[in-house]
């Protein structure tokens, strides 16, 4: 595993060689995450993009230990989260929080907004009742809601308002980094813009770092500083958003970027096509995961899984073929 220093400045979140393997029937292994390295610097946004089955959400869930990783290390500001005994995890959650895709499913329907926001304060901070009440009022206003919303239950809120509550809950304990797992993909476009605006605003005010999981490339281009592209459990390309979007190198990145339609008149795309659909993650061969679909595949692609190769300027790609044959 080649190590590529992807971040600029000090990493607040560091992920090294993360693995998650799910056993499946017949003694086979589903390799969901296969050796992922990530760095997120304080105050920056790293987008993790990929399609269904790429493992991006599994990475997020392993980082916060919602599912147990099979191997690897995760540290937050030098403190290990993986490995760490479960009972010591609570202290970590003051530093790292998560916002989920479906605010409908991630808010307890029996708790009103006040209770939702009070819970993390009670669990993680030694505050008096009056201090907590003050903080709860401050939080709803930070996310663009009003104290009138505090007594409402999730079903009395719109999708956008619910996502605002999810964001307020995540920032309640003043974390250093928030993992955003598809935070806008269940929202209408006009609401999507408002929520993204809120996230950018909070990042500026609070100096938050974001790990932004998304399949929406337009959103990624809009909010992220750097991007890591995942395919079948591995990062195939990473770099500053501007570079990767202007000059994508990995055949998968090219296929992905060229597939996204642009909401403007007269834009012509030239698609880079992959054959068929995503391969199975069960017992994958030791080869590039794109073999069989890739228009540029060489015999050497079947001889071992390629590591990320540094292209300079923090841009790296896991494809020796494109590196040897510059465009």
């Amino acid at each position: 595993m080649s190590f590529v220093n992807m971040s600029v400045g000090d990493a607040i979140l560091q992920v090294r060689d993360l693995h998650k393997i799910f056993p499946v029937e017949g003694g086979r292994r589903l390799v969901a995450v296969d050796g992922v390295d990530l760095d997120v610097a304080a105050g920056e946004t790293l987008a993790l993009v990929g399609e269904s089955g790429s493992g991006k959400s599994t990475v997020a869930r392993c980082i916060v230990r919602l599912i147990e990783p099979s191997g690897g290390e995760v540290t937050i500001d030098g403190t290990a989260i993986v490995p760490l005994p479960t009972k010591r995890l609570a202290g970590i959650y003051r530093r790292i929080q998560m916002v989920f895709q479906d605010p409908n499913a991630s808010l307890n329907p029996r708790m009103n907004v006040r209770q939702v926001l009070d819970e993390p304060l009670r669990l993680h901070l030694a505050l008096s009742g009056a201090e907590r009440a003050g903080r709860v009022r401050e939080l709803v206003e930070m996310v663009g809601l009003t104290p009138a919303h505090l007594e409402r239950y999730p079903h009395e809120l719109s999708g956008g308002q619910r996502q605002r509550v999810g964001i307020a809950r995540a920032i309640a304990v003043s974390p250093d980094i928030v993992i955003l797992d598809e935070p806008t993909s269940s929202l209408d476009v006009s609401v999507r813009g408002q929520i993204l605006g809120l996230l950018l605003d909070l990042q500026q005010r609070l100096g938050l770092a974001y790990l932004f999981i998304s399949h929406d490339l337009q959103v990624v281009q809009h909010v992220a500083d750097r991007v890591a592209v995942m395919y079948l459990g591995s990062i195939v390309e990473t770099g500053p958003v501007a570079d990767v979007f202007r000059d994508p190198r990995h055949p998968y990145t090219r296929a992905l970027l060229s597939a996204a339609p642009v909401a403007q008149w007269g834009v012509k795309r030239t698609r880079v096509r992959l054959a068929g659909e995503i391969a199975s993650a069960i017992d994958p061969p030791d080869a590039c995961r794109l073999v069989g679909r890739c228009p540029m595949a060489q015999p050497s692609c079947s001889a071992g899984k390629p590591s990320l190769i540094d292209l300079g300027q923090a841009h790296a790609v896991a494809c020796p073929v494109v590196v040897d044959r510059p465009t």
Partner: peptide, 9 residues
């Protein structure tokens, strides 16, 4: 559809 990208194309 709600996807104006597809529409434009």
């Amino acid at each position: 559809t709600h996807d104006l990208g597809v529409v434009a194309e």
